[in-house]
């Protein structure tokens, strides 16, 4: 299978500017809270044609930033993002349509749609602007686009507020697909939906993938959803991928102590959570990440070297990559 998206040591930082209160405080000798937040720190990832890669991690781990970089709506600082072998354009600057191949679907469909734009215009605005369809074809095009996501023609002339959350997300999907992308980045795309509606939208994602041979980067904090849709799963912690493996392999044979803890904490209907915490403490501040292995402050198997040396993401067998020297040496 051909690779559609490839990330090579992608890095992205955000600099927090000191605000007025900070500046005044620092005049009196206080330590400034401003700093550099490395949201994505050296990520390598390739997504093949028709493949679904799931991305999981706690809030603040950088998964949304990574999704935005892949979608081309946030430029990386260093590293390369390649779409079908060519560098991804920065969509915020380059508006000639060369970046249409990757589209994004957001968590909250209510804020992703313009409240004063009719559904027909939301769907056809981009394809018309980029010359993919003629204005005279807009109506027929929009009807087909809506049918593809399980909605009817009567939605065309209505406004976003006239729909439920699930239907609005369907409109967002129709809009993203209107420019024939090959990759769709779904950032918590079903998190705001109720369980019964969530299942409908997940089914839609699966159907569309088959029908259009789409690739997804499927970002979610909910491991059971990611597990259901993904071919491979990447686990992120403080800006880095700590483990990446085919779904079944990752779930049945998790190697990184963080992945193990994360999987142990998912509440299920069948098993009661053990009385012992699988993971103590909270995500350290990304403004001031620990030296050495980022996870060593919470890790049950950390050694002296983990406190000083940053481990690399090493390939085990069967396409299983893990960033932990302790489990690597055990193998």
């Amino acid at each position: 299978m051909e690779t559609v998206i490839e990330l090579r040591s992608v890095q992205r930082s955000f600099v927090t500017e000191p605000d007025l209160a900070d500046r005044i405080a620092s005049m009196f000798g206080a330590k400034s809270s401003a700093g550099t937040l490395r949201a994505v720190d050296g990520v390598d990832l390739a997504i093949a044609e028709g493949e679904v890669v799931g991305l999981v991690g706690e809030s603040g781990c950088g998964k949304s930033t990574l999704g935005r970089i892949v979608a081309g709506i946030l430029p990386q600082d260093t590293g390369d993002v390649l779409f079908k072998g060519r560098p991804m354009v920065d969509k915020t600057r380059c508006k000639d349509g060369s970046g249409l191949g990757v589209q994004m679907i957001f968590q909250n469909p209510a804020s992703a749609l313009d409240p004063r734009q009719k559904i027909i215009d939301a769907i056809t605005e981009a394809p018309i602007a980029h010359g993919l369809i003629k204005r005279s074809e807009a109506r027929d095009f929009a009807i087909r686009a809506l049918e593809r996501v399980g909605m009817r023609e009567d939605a065309l002339d209505r406004y976003p507020h006239q729909f439920s959350g699930g239907q609005r997300q369907r409109v967002c999907i129709a809009r993203a697909l209107a420019v024939n992308p090959s990759v769709v980045v779904c950032d918590e795309a079903v998190a705001s939906l109720d369980v019964s509606i969530q299942a409908q939208i997940i089914n839609l994602f699966l159907d569309l993938k088959e029908e259009l041979n789409l690739s997804y980067l499927f970002i979610s904090h909910d491991i059971s959803i990611v597990e259901h849709v993904s071919d491979r799963i990447a686990v992120m912690y403080l800006g880095q991928i700590v483990e990446l493996a085919p779904t079944r392999e990752l779930l049945e044979n998790p190697q990184h102590p963080y992945t193990r803890a994360l999987l142990a904490e998912v509440p299920s209907l069948d098993a009661r959570l053990s009385e012992e915490h699988a993971l103590t403490g909270e995500l350290p501040s990304p403004l001031n990440p620990p030296a050495g292995c980022r996870f060593h402050t919470r890790c049950p198997i950390a050694t002296e070297t983990c406190r000083s040396d940053m481990p690399r993401l090493e390939l085990l067998n069967g396409g299983h990559q893990v960033r932990c020297p302790v489990v690597q040496t055990k193998k």
Binding site: S196, A199, N203, L206, D222, E227, H228, V229, L269
Partner: peptide
């Protein structure tokens, strides 16, 4: 029954999920 069946954890990976048609 529908709610429980809709949970992704209760379906084989990659298969269509059971979903309750319609909305509230």
């Amino acid at each position: 029954q529908g709610l429980i069946a809709s949970m992704p954890a209760n379906a084989p990976p990659g298969e269509r999920l059971h979903s309750i048609p319609g909305g509230l």
